[in-house]
Simulated scan of single mutants.
Amino acid sequence: MTATVHPITARPGPASLDPLLQLVAPALNSVNEIILARMQSDVAVIPALAGHLISGGGKRLRPMLTLASAHLLDYGGTRHHKLSAAVEFIHTATLLHDDVVDGSEQRRGKKAANLIWGNQATVLVGDFLFSRAFELMVEDGSLKVLKILSSASAVIAQGEVDQLQTQRRIETTEERYLDVITAKTAVLFAAACQISAVVAERGEDVEAALDSYGRNLGIAFQLVDDAIDYAGDGAAMGKDAGDDFREGKLTLPVILAYKRGDSEARRFWEAAISGERNSDADFAEAIERMRAVGAIDDTLERARHYGRLAVDAIADFPAGKAKSAMTETVAFAVQRAY
């Protein structure tokens, strides 16, 4: 990787996922067919519940990154199609489990699956999708791919448990928060990109570059998500604004606002995170207190920093549609809050 700091966006105007989608569209159709086929079951609730989320308007960003990384490496085969489906199944399974843990009411703008089918069925269908993902990995036959994706799955689970441990703990540090979001979000982005280098039989330096691209993109993506909870609207997020606040999640905007606040502000945050102050008026006050100390803006600036690291990670790859689309994907990820 070069030491030069490269711009996040390669062209003027609002960033979009369209270049990425256009790049991978034919292969993504194949991936979607695999997803549809593999989520079927004789137990009717399984495809119904899984389809509620999988067909619920998700961007398929992680499998698209697997496909785009293969394009970047000029890989001409199709092994990565099943692996892209496995990546999406892992992601979907974690979302189903998250909604049960968090008691979420919305996901991707629709009623959360656990509110329709119940917590038990939702957890078990999540387990089913994890199993399908591992079936696809085994069918691929690469022990290295299996190691990368299985390790990512384990780290994601650890990250979710770690986030649960930090919930309503106001003393959570920025370093601990970064560890959590790296585990629960960025690791799957990294694995999704890295496995294409394995399939394309490129060296460890290429694997490391794609891992770095995905990991830094994933951190930037989650930072923006956490800022949007205080700066965006529910329709844009596909969930209710303020969910993180009411659940007592220690995201970076809260950590910065607490650290920078005076004694009165700290008392407010201690009460809010403990669950004593979680009304709509309290949420509005939280936003104002964040804005007063620049917590939201600085969270977004950190996202841009990690976005630049992602772009730097693929700087030495040849110019072309794949590199351009992956660069614009970073720009899209960090511009979503505007």
Rank of each mutant, 00 (worst) to 15 (best):
V145D: 04
T299L: 06
P47Q: 03
E33F: 03
K321E: 13
R304Q: 07
T182P: 00
D102Y: 08
G275N: 10
G232S: 12
G248F: 03
S69N: 12
Y177D: 10
L36R: 10
R202N: 03
R302T: 11
L17Y: 04
A157L: 06
A157E: 00
I116T: 09
D262N: 13
D226F: 15
V31F: 04
I287A: 02
D74Y: 03
L49E: 11
S212T: 12
D262C: 09
D282Q: 02
I181F: 06
G320D: 01
Y258G: 05
L223H: 08
S324E: 14
A272H: 09
L136G: 05
L164V: 11
V330G: 02
K321T: 09
I228R: 11
L217E: 08
M64L: 09
R289I: 05
P7S: 11
Q163Y: 05
L73R: 04
S142F: 04
L252W: 09
Q40A: 10
T122M: 08
V101T: 12
E171H: 04
H91W: 06
P19S: 12
I35D: 03
E160G: 12
R289V: 07
S279E: 13
A113P: 10
K321I: 00
L23F: 00
K323Y: 04
G203N: 15
L21I: 14
I195M: 07
T94A: 09
A157Q: 01
R62W: 09
D99A: 04
S30K: 14
A257V: 10
L309W: 02
I314A: 10
D42R: 12
T172R: 04
A37F: 00
R260V: 08
S84N: 06
V45P: 03
I90H: 02
E301C: 00
V138L: 13
E301Y: 01
L21E: 08
E88G: 14
Y75W: 13
N114D: 10
R246I: 11
L83I: 15
E328S: 10
A86N: 03
D98Q: 12
E276D: 11
